[in-house]
Each structure stands twice: as C-alpha cells, then as structure tokens.
Design a binder for these strands. Structure first.
Lengths: 166, 166
DNA sequence: TATCGAAACTTGCAGATACAACCAACCCCG
DNA sequence: CGGGGTTGGTTGTATCTGCAAGTTTCGATA
C-alpha cells in the first residue's frame, strides 16, 4: 500500500473549481444549442467536424475518433442526424465494411446558422471573461493535461491527418 | 442581426482543447472509480459532500445543490446508494416535506477507501502535470468562468453556509 | 382557521449512452 | 486460395438522466 499524497489547499481549491466547471459548462452549452437550434452540443460538434473535413465527408470511425465517441454512440447519432436530413450515409468504395458520412447541404446550412449563437455562448461563458494572457495560459495548461488524457491526440487531429477521407 | 465576433486563432486553439478536456476528463474519472470502487464519479462526489457536512447529514435539496444535480436525479442516486447501505434516508423533523440523507458508517468507510485512488487519478491526470504557478493560474481562470456559469456559487457552498442541516 | 400558491420530494415516461454480442468484409499467412 | 484473426459498423439490453406530472406539507393571507 502506497502512502497517499493528498492535495494541498491550493490544489484542492483548484480541483473543486475544476469539477464544478466540468459539471456546469457542458450543461450550459447544451442548453443554448438545444434551445436555439434543437441540437445537442455533441450533435453540433459532429456536424462541425464534418464541415471541416475534405469534401465534408468522413468515414464513421474517423468521425468517431474526432468526436471521441464510441462507435455505437456515433452510429445512433448519425442515424438521428440522417433522419433530420443533415447528413447522408453512403457505402465506402475502398472498403466495403466502411460507411461514409457526408454533410448534406441542409446540414451545412444548419452549421452556418448555429455557429454564431454557439460562438456567442462560448464567448459569454468563457473567453470574454479572460485576459489574452489567461487564454494563452489556459491553452498551455490544457495541452499538458491532454497529454495525459489523450496521448495519441485523437481529438486534435482535425488538421494534421490525411486519412479517413472518401 | 448582430455581427458575429469570431474567435481568434489563439482563442480557437484554447477552446478546442477545452472541449476535448470536457469530453475526456469526466470519462477518465468515471473509469477509475467504477473500475476500482464500483462507483460513478457522481456517486463518489455525493458521498464526499455528505462526508464533509455537519453530522454527515444533509437534506435532499441541499445535497442536490452541492452536487449540482436536479432533484429527480439525486433522488434516484440516493435510492441506489441506500440500497447499497451507503446512505440512509430519514424524515426531517423540522419540515415534514423534507428528507434527510445521512452517510452510514459503511458509506464513510467507502469514501475513506475510495479517496486515495481518486486523488491519485486527479494527480496523474491533472495536478502533477502542472507547475504550482499553473495551478494558481487555473484557479483564477476557473473562478472567473464560474462567475458566468454559477453566479450564486451553489457548487462552492460546501463551507460557507449554515443551512441544510438536520 | 380555511384556502391557495409554493416547496420538497418521488415517480412515469422518453431519450441518450455504454457494454456486449453480432454480422460482414478485410488481410495475412500457410 | 482458404482459413483465422481483425476491423468496421449496427443492434439488443440495461442504466442513467431530464422533464413533467403527482402528492404531501408548508406558509401566508383573508
């Protein structure tokens, strides 16, 4: 049995706030998007990832990696988005096991329409309350934290990789 | 229609990391606790809030405020914890509408047993990767953010208030 | 003190998610 | 070229959570 190294007062104070943010921020983001756009934050994020992909198409598993969703979760969300005509599934020509998920024109319009309100919420809840220095500090802090949480950087791969296309 | 003020490159970069942390950290905390202690992070947090309360008792609604849970959610979690004999419900003598939730001895032992592993996870995933200056910066940043998310400071009321007893 | 609106839960119902089981297609190696 | 293990994706089942409705009690007011 290893001796526990408890948190210092400063560390505890920071952690209490961290857990509060973890609990409240996702709910606040979901609230704005579901109220104004009838989308969950996860659905919006999924559409946004697609909108940034080459040709606005990704394979299901590539999309799952970018959104950090399990495959079952993403599959059901795509089913739901598809029934709203925001995305379209099609078989992948290179690998017949795979499915491509493509943003429809309506899906693109939805992202375009939803983005301003979402950005406004992000500003109101987080960014605008911080100084530029704090924004920079926060970026460095999360970079370090993400090294622990996501060593492979799956969630930040939107720009660097070239797989998962067509 | 108001002109949208988009995020700068630095702001966007910070926000992308923030959303990644929001998605990954709760899952990581849940994973450790459910693997090692058969508790969700929310259940652990609920027990922890009770363990810090005077006499280890809180009214259901006071406990809900401290954990940021809706009443229905907390009610069901308490039912579950009660069936595991970790907490005990009893009618409140002052207000017969209200229910007191009390940590049992077994519940206290559970918190004591689970805390080291949880703290270790918090250290491994977050705290130990940061410098003391970063911990301090993060505290200030979250203080500001929480002013937007939780203006009444409900989630940080563990020490300041005197209501919700017995 | 009778009544009416609010508060403190609890429960019914519907949607979301995880895990596991499943099927189909792929790839490698004998 | 024929398994055998692996990968890509979907679906069954159980749990969790939110919203809304229902019940009891409270408190203020007429």
């Amino acid at each position: 049995m290893i001796e526990t190294k408890w948190l210092s007062a400063a560390e505890r104070s920071t952690w209490v706030k961290f857990t509060a943010v973890l609990e409240l921020l996702p709910a606040a983001l979901d609230l704005q998007l579901s109220r104004d756009e009838a989308l969950t934050h996860f659905e919006y994020f999924t559409l946004a990832m697609l909108s940034e992909a080459p040709n606005r198409v990704l394979r299901t598993s590539a999309l799952a990696a970018r959104t950090n969703a399990t495959l079952p979760r993403l599959s059901r969300v795509v089913t739901h988005l598809e029934s709203a005509s925001l995305v379209k599934r099609s078989p992948c020509s290179e690998d017949r096991r795979a499915t491509n998920v493509e943003l429809t024109e309506a899906g693109w319009q939805k992202v375009v329409a939803a983005a301003p309100g979402h950005v406004a919420a992000v500003r109101r809840l987080v960014i605008d309350a911080l100084t530029p220095t704090q924004v920079e500090n926060l970026s460095e802090i999360f970079t370090v934290v993400l090294k622990q949480l996501d060593p492979d950087g799956r969630m930040l791969a939107s720009d660097s990789e070239a797989d998962g296309r067509r």
